[in-house]
Design a protein around this nucleic acid. Structure first.
Lengths: 183, 183
DNA sequence: CGTAGGTTTGACCTTTTTCAAAATTAGTGG
DNA sequence: CCACTAATTTTGAAAAAGGTCAAACCTACG
């Protein structure tokens, strides 16, 4: 189990045939590998300079034995991850490419807000390939969809890395599955 | 939290726009709602006559306070669900319709085997709609894919409910993403 | 300045969805 | 037990979404 101190980490699973599923993106303060008891179920790769802190599982076990309430906390943390995984499952399973990207951007926006940053100025530390493998799309479709959102005036794009949300409401409407009102 | 005693339950999440994500199918002995601490995050619907046993969450908390090792057990159970959710995520996200159905049938087959039943004779207690919303496909595509697998000689279909696996290896090859060898 | 990696764009093709209708299955009352 | 109705499943044809292949375009870095 690790804890991200600085930077940004992309957590993914590789398949024998080369296909990849990105499971999550971890920001400073996030824990990695909580659900992977015993088996090392996933890989992780830093996308920028990153510092992590390692916490052996044995320590976790020890801590839980000392205080049962922490067992509950641990349980709640994994439950939270489970909830997120199912949310992503729904996004990938039932939504169109545009809806997926809109959801993704809104999730990043909410994350920024929670961290006390500007929720309308999103920095993307990950590559298009990471986003594609996260949302179950191809690089090309991700790129095209970014362009489409830009042309529709919902976002601004600078250097493929900085996204400015110009119309949160329309984006949210898209993510919800409705049709954007703007042309 | 519930425990299925008899029958079969379909666990799903409804979205405001009517879209539905089936999260899992529960068989006798399976627990439902483990990851849903506090918020009632999902619905469930019996597809056949079903009996469940209700276990209040407060009892769980009590038990954990009594014995910390059970906290670990609980944690492991949710981790297991997390693993399953991510496996499904991958299936839905990266695989074709045929591969998804093949994976699904193989998963059911393995489940049958674990339960000591014939792994090659699978009864489908759920409807095509349930399967479709589980795999992120439409009813029509599910039906067509069943037909395709039947025509290719990998399975037999009786009354839309009983599936006989005729070529496990080819099915597994499909689920892995390879091309079936048979015409 | 030139190269390498990542991104965008274009044209075409495959897969899946959509809409519509036929066929099967299940349930109900005679 | 059989006929009738409702629901589910299967099949068909057309349309749309996304994928694939290929090339051009940045951007950062040496």
């Amino acid at each position: 189990v690790y804890r991200v101190e600085a930077g940004h980490v992309c957590i993914y699973k590789m398949m024998p045939d080369g296909r990849r599923q990105v499971i999550d993106f971890a920001y400073p303060g996030d824990m990695i590998g909580l659900g992977a008891l015993g088996t090392h179920a996933a890989n992780a790769q830093a996308t920028v300079k990153t510092r992590v802190r390692y916490i052996p599982i044995s320590v976790l076990h020890e801590v839980v034995r000392t205080d049962a309430r922490l067992g509950i906390t641990l349980y709640e943390a994994v439950s939270q991850e489970l909830l997120a995984a199912r949310e992503l499952l729904f996004t990938v399973s039932q939504r169109t490419a545009t809806e997926r990207l809109a959801s993704f951007l809104l999730a990043l926006s909410r994350r920024s807000e929670r961290r006390g940053e500007d929720p309308l100025e999103i920095v993307l530390p990950m590559t298009r390939a990471d986003i594609a493998d996260f949302l179950g799309l191809t690089i090309e479709t991700v790129s095209r969809t970014f362009t489409k959102l830009r042309n529709e005036g919902l976002i601004d794009l600078e250097q493929c890395i900085l996204v400015t949300i110009k119309d949160v409401e329309a984006l949210a409407e898209l993510a919800r599955g409705g049709h954007a009102s703007k042309a």
